[in-house]
Nucleic acid binder design. Structure first.
Lengths: 147, 147
DNA sequence: AAACACCTTAAAGTGCACTCTAAGGCAAGG
DNA sequence: CCTTGCCTTAGAGTGCACTTTAAGGTGTTT
């Protein structure tokens, strides 16, 4: 018989608050076991499950999608393809996010280098960074229509 | 004399709403020029400035930090080191975020592969993913103290 | 003359994911 | 017996970054 963790201990184990754990349960992401006094307890396998949920969250998956995913999972093997497709979309989105982040980081790094130059008094060219920035200025105006 | 953009046109150009543009101005991130009727207008250089702001935002920099950054900038060259240090921190944080994201993505990818196997009926081993997940379960319980 | 784009201030609303309080109660340990 | 940890429901509060509305206005275009 594996160890049973009550919510307080379990919370520390998985790095969530007891509030959040109950909240996730409300939302249908987790099912806790109950003892004779209706006190929640969790098992090793629950650590793994919460861990997995946190990996999904960590890739940017939203609670609503997570809920849908869990509902599908509960419906058994018939939903495997749908679940895979969900994860594939999450993955693609996360990869796009990373790419964007890296693009922004490149500009940032350039600016830092420029500051380093300024600090070292080795570069006096105030315009070079502006020029560099220029090449990034064909973004944004596409995915936002308002007014 | 370069072209003057009024707020509506400028908004489309930089991919923000006019609301947000005025909001950023309130917050001190942008300074708009005004014509004789107090109507805002923006120049090419403002496109570059907003572009840069959006790069910083894109790396995860918060509005408050952005405000501080802009305040420092207004104080001139004496604050260059401080600004560089700010950007370096933002950069380090962003890089850490990417690393974390990639870690989560790895698990996700594994799960997708597992689903692919399931879909193809080539793998029947239901436990392999669980085993794989196990190795990631020494996280989280460190950076969260509550109750 | 009406439509349109802009201006102001102040305040309320939105979305997400928690986070916490209130106000009651049960069970085990020192 | 009191503290600690857990239980419940319902609802309010938090943080961030917008987003929108309200209710008044000006100036330019059709």
């Amino acid at each position: 018989m594996t160890k049973q963790y009550r919510i307080g201990e379990f919370a520390k184990l998985v790095g969530l608050s007891t509030y959040t754990l109950r909240y996730y349960e409300d939302q249908g992401l987790i099912v806790a076991h109950r003892d004779d006094n209706d006190v929640r307890y969790y098992l090793e396998e629950d650590i793994r499950w919460v861990g997995f949920i946190l990996h999904l969250k960590g890739t940017g998956m939203r609670l609503n999608d997570l809920k849908r995913y869990v509902r599908l999972r509960a419906q058994g093997d018939a939903t495997i393809e749908e679940r895979r497709d969900m994860l594939q979309k999450v993955k693609a989105d996360a990869e796009a996010d990373i790419a964007e982040l890296q693009m922004h980081l490149e500009v940032l790094s350039h600016k830092i280098d420029w500051y380093d130059g300024k600090v070292d008094q080795t570069i006096a060219d105030t315009e070079s960074f502006q020029d560099y920035l220029q090449q990034f200025n064909e973004q944004g105006a596409d995915k936002n229509g308002q007014e």
